[in-house]
Nucleic acid binder design. Structure first.
Length: 194
DNA sequence: GACGCGATGTAA
DNA sequence: TACATCGCGTCC
């Protein structure tokens, strides 16, 4: 697995969100290698984006890492789940890209174990589900996406990308309609609206 | 479709 | 202290 270059993260947030599609999330877990291909992302445009945790440059213990360099890992808890993001944009511009869905590539038996009683289609088709399937926890908060044991690797070329509004942010005014969600067209592991 | 879960943050 | 949230599993 070839780890992505640090320079990869130094590009505009929306372009990075699209470029993340097809990349592999590789987790060298104690139980073995776990790999998922990114098939869905959402960009959060920092201070000017009402749906972003960092809206208005809100700076807390949780959002602190978003103000750091691009390529850092931003994990946070949503109720009982862990969600994972890629920090984007230069220092002090608190943008991030949420990984919403991946396609299982390697370590399928372990993923089945982590996603007990669920059919394969639902192992990783949501931001909380994929962290569970890949064994990702809050311990990676503030680490860099180019460092083992959790890193991004060059994956597959994605030939068709669809773009649309984000999910789960109904209470965010105009931001509801912004086309900041990217996914691989027709990939069966893209998350579903509820 | 409704409800509970429960880390984190905001408002009161 | 009370309520909302970038979600999900379970029950109806």
């Amino acid at each position: 697995m070839k780890i992505v270059e640090r320079e990869f993260f130094y590009q505009p947030t929306l372009e990075l969100a699209k470029d993340l599609l097809g990349k592999y999330i590789v987790h060298e877990h104690s139980s073995g290698l776990l790999i998922g291909k990114i098939v869905e992302t959402e960009a959060y445009m920092g201070a000017d984006d009402k749906a972003a945790h960092s809206f208005g440059n809100r700076r807390t213990k949780r959002t602190e890492v978003m103000f750091g360099e691009p390529g850092l890992i931003y994990t946070y808890q949503m109720h009982t789940h862990t969600l994972i993001n890629v920090v984007a944009a230069p220092v002090d511009t608190p943008n991030a890209i949420l990984i919403r869905a991946v396609e299982p590539i390697e370590g399928l038996e372990q993923m089945q174990e982590f996603r007990k009683n669920q059919p394969m289609k639902q192992w990783t088709n949501g931001p909380g589900k994929l962290t569970k399937a890949l064994g990702i926890t809050m311990e990676y908060y503030g680490k860099h996406w180019t460092e083992k044991p959790l890193y991004l690797a060059e994956g597959e070329k994605v030939t068709s990308v669809s773009i649309g509004p984000r999910i789960g942010i109904e209470n965010s005014g105009d931001a509801v309609h912004y086309p900041y969600r990217f996914w691989e067209t027709d990939n069966p592991f893209v998350s579903k609206m509820r």
